[in-house]
Design a protein around this nucleic acid. Structure first.
Lengths: 215, 215
DNA sequence: GAGTAATTCTGCACCTGGTATACATTTACT
DNA sequence: AGTAAATGTATACCAGGTGCAGAATTACTC
């Protein structure tokens, strides 16, 4: 930034352009040839940047793909913190998830744009990418637990238990939707089922597993 | 194995000894100098084995440490499958977890033998080890979901939702116990609290998050 | 507008985890 | 004893990632 005005200077803008150039080159190459088939050296060359510079922008190869999803890690926590008064955390999260379904937010697994589908498949096909997604999941759990402690006044353990359950359920719903779309179903076809499943899942979350099995 | 009797032959025994020798050398070195500070080449040398042979026994460096925990991945699924008649899956899992606490099963986080403590700290300190533990967790979820489908007659989605919640809760309880012991508390001191927390957690699992927050 | 300090980029060598190949050694069976 | 199968080894190699020294670029000052 310049000293006087708040505008980003040339240096800042150049950095942003480089960042985007590397990420774009990476994703294009990965989508075309597969994540494991393309080396970071090739990505650097395509982005006209040295390998060393690439790693200055993205700490690992996986981040070339997943940096876009990084802020979803704190999404549930933000929703809980920003919920309207007299709303329970669970209700706020349910409404947010249902809205995500209606709006075809990719995070719900209910977006069937070809680019999104190919990206999803790429992530599921590359073990190291899938593993880092699990890392996001536990990050989301931590963030949500913190938000619950601070805004719902629960004990620390209760908050962590609730967070694990909630994030796990959202994750499962999204994976299920993504799997069905990957299998060929369209988002519009799936939508009603996805909404019904989500409502059922949040009901389960509210009422517990008491009626899981009669035996 | 020999053709006639069922005893393991020399080849088999030698393999087992080599396997144990590599694992022991690895863990000793890792505990002494840290997981990231020791290379697999050093482990191979200490075990008097070539690097190539080491990787024939353990597919990755992380497996040198975590192969011992691998069968915990299916533990919950086995408990559900083997539950006595007229017992609900949740009740069986609760009893199993409480028994684990009483018996100081390391998987519950309530074992304070110095070796266990050091191993726990080592795993938490090395990101790649912690990441693979997350992988075990999702493996446990899959296995438990499968067991629920087959023995409790739930739908596939319900089973996966329940499995995610159950495994997540067990995981959280164990982590909480492990953190307290790492902080210096003894297993005996922690035991009563651990039991109370586990009972509370399974109650939450049964009854749901309805009473999470009054707002 | 020239000069200088601070960033940023680069090329290079290097380390480590993991794999391919080709060959030597050991075990098991006849 | 001899042979086939399984194991082990040495070597070279690839890819992700880091440290370092210096070149190039940007930002600030006079």
């Amino acid at each position: 930034m310049n000293a006087v005005d708040g505008k980003p200077g040339l240096r800042e803008r150049k950095k942003q352009r480089t960042h985007a150039a590397i990420s774009d080159a990476a994703i294009a190459l990965f989508l075309e040839h597969g994540f494991n088939q393309v080396s970071v050296a090739q990505v650097a060359e395509a982005a006209e940047v040295s390998k060393r510079t690439l790693f200055a922008y993205f700490p690992t190869k996986e981040d070339l793909v997943l940096h876009r999803l990084a802020d979803h890690e704190t999404e549930s926590a933000r929703v809980v913190r920003a919920r309207p008064p007299r709303t329970t955390p669970l209700a706020a999260l349910r409404e947010h998830f249902l809205r995500g379904l209606r709006e075809r937010d990719p995070i719900t697994g209910l977006n069937d744009h070809p680019q999104v589908l190919r990206l999803t498949r790429m992530i599921l096909d590359a073990p190291s990418l899938a593993a880092r997604m699990e890392g996001f999941r536990s990050g989301a759990e931590r963030a949500l637990a913190q938000a619950l402690v601070e805004t719902a006044g629960t004990s620390d353990l209760t908050a962590r238990l609730a967070a694990v359950q909630i994030v796990g359920v959202q994750w499962t719903l999204a994976q299920d939707n993504a799997a069905r779309l990957a299998y060929g179903q369209s988002a519009d076809e799936r939508c009603a089922g996805a909404v019904a499943d989500a409502e059922e899942a949040f009901r389960l979350l509210e009422n517990g597993l008491r009626h899981l099995s009669r035996q």
